[in-house]
Structure formats: C-alpha cells, structure tokens
Measured scan of single mutants.
Amino acid sequence: MKATFQVPSITCNHCVDKIEKFVGEIEGVSFIDVSVEKKSVVVEFDAPATQDLIKEALLDAGQEVV
C-alpha cells in the first residue's frame, strides 16, 4: 500500500531525518520519501503498518499532518 501525507511543518533536513527515523521504526514500512519542497511524505507499507500508525509517528516526530 502507498500513502501520501501533507506535512506543512517540514522545513529542513533535520525534519527529514527525524521523520525517516520515526516512520522507519514502524514494522511493515518499506519505503519513505520526504520532500521539503512539496512538504509531503510518501510511504509504502504493508501490514502491520497502517496509515494511522504512520500519522501517529509523524506527530511523535513533532510534525503537523493535514
């Protein structure tokens, strides 16, 4: 499964690193693409990962998800 999250609070590479760390810890996540320019995060994943778990990880990383 693939999901795109709009994350307007992404401003720098530190944000990218933190997002990759938090989302990458979720079992089932196979790909993460964070774009500072587009302020988006694209995640490819399989169970047990879910969109809700990914959104929670983004929030835990200090990001706003819309």
Score class of each variant (00 low, 15 high):
4 T>L: 09
47 A>R: 09
11 T>N: 08
15 C>M: 11
53 L>V: 07
56 E>P: 00
44 E>I: 15
34 V>K: 00
22 F>P: 01
17 D>T: 13
40 S>N: 08
16 V>M: 05
51 Q>K: 14
61 A>L: 07
40 S>D: 05
18 K>E: 09
49 A>K: 02
31 F>A: 13
33 D>C: 15
45 F>A: 00
3 A>I: 14
66 V>R: 08
52 D>N: 09
41 V>N: 01
18 K>M: 10
61 A>Q: 04
20 E>A: 12
41 V>T: 01
42 V>E: 08
36 V>E: 05
1 M>V: 08
3 A>K: 06
36 V>T: 05
19 I>E: 00
1 M>A: 07
28 G>S: 01
25 E>I: 11
10 I>V: 07
66 V>K: 09
52 D>E: 13
58 L>P: 00
3 A>Q: 06
61 A>P: 02
35 S>Q: 07
20 E>S: 12
7 V>A: 04
55 K>I: 15
46 D>K: 14
29 V>C: 03
44 E>G: 11
33 D>P: 01
66 V>I: 11
12 C>D: 13
42 V>T: 13
40 S>V: 14
62 G>F: 14
65 V>Q: 05
30 S>C: 08
27 E>Y: 08
47 A>P: 13
62 G>D: 06
53 L>F: 05
24 G>D: 03
26 I>D: 02
59 L>D: 05
65 V>N: 05
31 F>Y: 13
52 D>L: 11
23 V>W: 04
18 K>W: 07
5 F>K: 00
29 V>P: 00
66 V>H: 07
38 K>P: 02
10 I>C: 13
63 Q>M: 15
24 G>T: 06
48 P>Q: 03
15 C>W: 10
16 V>I: 09
63 Q>K: 07
19 I>V: 05
37 E>N: 06
35 S>H: 05
48 P>K: 00
47 A>T: 09
7 V>Q: 01
26 I>Y: 00
10 I>T: 04
18 K>I: 12
45 F>Q: 01
18 K>C: 06
4 T>W: 13
17 D>N: 09
6 Q>R: 13
64 E>Y: 13
21 K>N: 05
22 F>E: 04
48 P>L: 02
51 Q>A: 14
63 Q>A: 08
53 L>S: 08
57 A>G: 05
61 A>F: 07
28 G>H: 01
33 D>E: 12
9 S>Q: 06
6 Q>D: 11
16 V>L: 06
29 V>Q: 02
41 V>A: 03
31 F>K: 13
64 E>V: 14
32 I>R: 00
10 I>K: 00
23 V>E: 02
6 Q>N: 11
63 Q>E: 05
35 S>M: 05
37 E>W: 09
59 L>K: 11
15 C>H: 11
14 H>S: 14
53 L>C: 06
1 M>C: 12
46 D>R: 14
57 A>Q: 03
7 V>K: 00
42 V>Y: 15
4 T>Y: 14
55 K>N: 05
41 V>H: 02
22 F>C: 05
3 A>C: 12
44 E>N: 10
37 E>H: 08
21 K>D: 04
1 M>T: 08
11 T>V: 11
